[in-house]
């Protein structure tokens, strides 16, 4: 151990004898520059992260802009109750869960399969080109992605033109509730599959090459090597990401859906976060929508805790 660390360690040892306040005072003086640097960071987190948490109190209040968070009258769990009794409640829960379920079924395995296939490409140059192209959509803004989608699936758009070539009737994709999830998930896969594969490719690059040599000596072909070496090698990464995914089953971001949906497709498209947006930001029903948001956060929080506990139990990997 270096002299300076020893010096700090001895200071810490001396600290142990003194009262907590003295210790803290001494630490604040000793590390004054560090705390000075931390000051804006702490202020930022206090205002913009803990501020809204305090603001969650309005979920239990009849919030009026003039009264403020503290001054508004309490209403207890009235907002929660009216949400649970709302006839859209089950539709919101169902849509939120189903979109996540389909993502788990299609969007989750897609990057794994792509990574496995990329790993089998012999020409390194070709592999690099494919990777570069497949990462590209990740950097396109969601507005442009949805804008392109809207244009392509329009009545006279690219997709319907192709369907017409095969003599099929045009489909009003964005007006049909039945198509919403397919469009949402497939455009998500289109945008994210390449980028998502990076993490698995990175995991593959850490696999010991001698394992492949050993497998080859034992007569394993490429298929066998993939099954017995590559897949087990990336399994920890897959498990972690899977658990993270399951942990976020109850949350779907509103940003993309708000761009894609319309009242005709609310039946399948409306999720909790978009409902909060409509009720709160557009409808200014702050107390109620904050309660709906809080309900969603609490369920998500419980799920992620559960996921982390399971992750700790089944593997050494945990999120924190």
């Amino acid at each position: 151990m270096s002299s300076l660390n020893k010096n700090r360690a001895s200071l810490l040892a001396r600290d142990r004898k003194d009262s907590k306040l003295t210790v803290l005072g001494r630490d604040l003086i000793r590390n004054r520059y560090i705390y000075l640097m931390l000051l804006p960071v702490i202020v930022y987190y206090a205002i913009f992260h803990y501020g809204p948490m305090y603001g969650l109190l309005i979920a239990f209040k009849n919030y009026g802009l003039a009264d403020g968070v503290w001054g508004s009258p309490w209403v207890g769990f009235a907002h929660f109750q009216s949400f649970f009794e709302n006839h859209f409640f089950w539709r919101l829960i169902r849509n939120t869960l189903l979109i996540n379920l389909y993502e788990l079924l299609f969007a989750f395995p897609a990057p794994i399969i792509l990574a496995l296939l990329l790993n089998e490409l012999r020409l390194k140059f070709f592999k690099r080109v494919v990777q570069t192209i497949s990462y590209l959509p990740h950097f396109i803004s969601i507005v442009v992605v949805v804008g392109m989608l809207v244009d392509f699936v329009a009545r006279d758009g690219l997709i319907n033109n192709i369907l017409a070539m095969f003599g099929m009737e045009p489909i009003a994709f964005l007006q049909e509730p039945g198509w919403f999830r397919s469009l949402y998930i497939s455009s998500g896969v289109w945008q994210g599959v390449g980028w998502g594969s990076i993490i698995y490719l990175a995991a593959m690059s850490t696999i010991d090459p001698s394992l492949y040599d050993a497998a080859r000596i034992d007569g394993a072909g490429r298929w066998r090597q993939t099954l017995s070496v590559t897949l087990p090698g990336i399994m920890p990464t897959i498990v972690i990401l899977l658990i993270l995914n399951i942990g976020s089953m109850m949350s779907v971001g509103s940003e993309k859906i708000i761009l894609m949906y319309n009242p005709l497709t609310y039946e399948t498209a409306d999720v909790i976060s978009t409902y909060v947006y409509r009720k709160g930001i557009l409808g200014a029903d702050f107390g109620y929508s904050a309660a709906v948001g809080l309900f969603n956060s609490i369920v998500s929080f419980i799920l992620i805790m559960l996921a982390n506990t399971i992750s700790k139990a089944v593997s050494d990997h945990k999120l924190w």
């Binding site: 987190y45 205002i47 913009f48 992260h49 803990y50 501020g51 809204p52 948490m53 305090y54 603001g55 969650l56 309005i58 919030y63 968070v69 509103s254 976060s273 909060v276 947006y277 709160g280 930001i281 702050f286 929508s289 904050a290 948001g293 809080l294 969603n296 956060s297 929080f301 992620i304 924190w320």
Partner: peptide
């Protein structure tokens, strides 16, 4: 305290009101 904000946050409406 920072990590907590990554798992739990006030959400859209309280942030907007803030």
């Amino acid at each position: 305290l920072i990590v907590i904000t990554m798992v739990f946050n006030g959400g859209l409406i309280p942030s907007f009101l803030l």
